[in-house]
Amino acid sequence: MTDRKYSAVRRRRCARLIIPFIALVGTFAVGCSDVQKLNYEPEELSVDSARSKTKSVSSQLLEMIGVKGKVTQPGPGLAKCDDEPDAKDLYIMNHPWSVYGVSNDILKQGMENLRKSLPERGWKILKDGETKSVARDPEILAENKKLRYAAHIVWMRTSASGRPMINVTVVSGCFRAPAGTDINKEY
Results as ranks from 00 to 15, higher is better:
residue 113 N to P: 08
residue 31 G to I: 04
residue 116 K to E: 12
residue 167 N to F: 08
residue 164 P to G: 15
residue 178 P to Y: 03
residue 178 P to D: 07
residue 57 V to G: 04
residue 7 S to L: 06
residue 131 T to P: 11
residue 27 T to F: 04
residue 173 G to H: 02
residue 11 R to G: 07
residue 27 T to P: 00
residue 52 S to P: 00
residue 24 L to W: 00
residue 180 G to H: 09
residue 186 E to F: 00
residue 131 T to Y: 13
residue 157 R to Q: 15
residue 176 R to T: 12
residue 29 A to Q: 10
residue 115 R to A: 03
residue 31 G to Y: 11
residue 39 N to S: 13
residue 152 H to A: 05
residue 31 G to D: 15
residue 56 S to D: 13
residue 152 H to N: 11
residue 28 F to W: 13
residue 15 A to H: 07
residue 9 V to K: 12
residue 142 A to M: 03
residue 80 K to C: 06
residue 58 S to W: 03
residue 131 T to M: 11
residue 182 D to C: 04
residue 52 S to W: 01
residue 121 R to S: 14
residue 115 R to G: 09
residue 112 E to R: 13
residue 47 V to K: 03
residue 67 V to G: 01
residue 160 A to N: 12
residue 120 E to P: 01
residue 147 L to M: 14
residue 163 R to G: 14
residue 147 L to E: 15
residue 29 A to N: 08
residue 111 M to G: 02
residue 96 P to S: 09
residue 21 F to H: 03
residue 90 L to W: 04
residue 131 T to F: 11
residue 145 K to L: 14
residue 4 R to K: 14
residue 137 D to R: 01
residue 129 G to S: 05
residue 78 L to N: 01
residue 92 I to R: 08
residue 111 M to K: 04
residue 155 W to C: 05
residue 38 L to G: 00
residue 17 L to A: 13
residue 91 Y to W: 01
residue 114 L to P: 05
residue 179 A to Y: 03
residue 41 E to K: 13
residue 6 Y to V: 11
residue 31 G to E: 09
residue 66 G to W: 02
residue 176 R to L: 14
residue 123 W to Q: 07
residue 172 S to L: 10
residue 49 S to M: 05
residue 71 V to I: 15
residue 16 R to D: 05
residue 121 R to N: 15
residue 158 T to Y: 06
residue 164 P to Y: 06
residue 148 R to C: 04
residue 25 V to Y: 00
residue 35 V to T: 12
residue 99 V to H: 07
residue 52 S to I: 06
residue 41 E to A: 11
residue 144 N to R: 11
residue 88 K to H: 08
residue 45 L to Q: 14
residue 51 R to V: 09
residue 9 V to C: 01
residue 16 R to A: 10
residue 86 D to T: 15
residue 39 N to Q: 14
residue 91 Y to G: 00
residue 139 E to M: 14
residue 6 Y to S: 13
residue 36 Q to Y: 05
residue 156 M to Y: 11
residue 133 S to F: 03
residue 180 G to A: 10
residue 65 I to R: 08
residue 3 D to F: 12
residue 25 V to H: 05
residue 124 K to P: 00
residue 6 Y to G: 06
residue 53 K to E: 10
residue 91 Y to N: 00
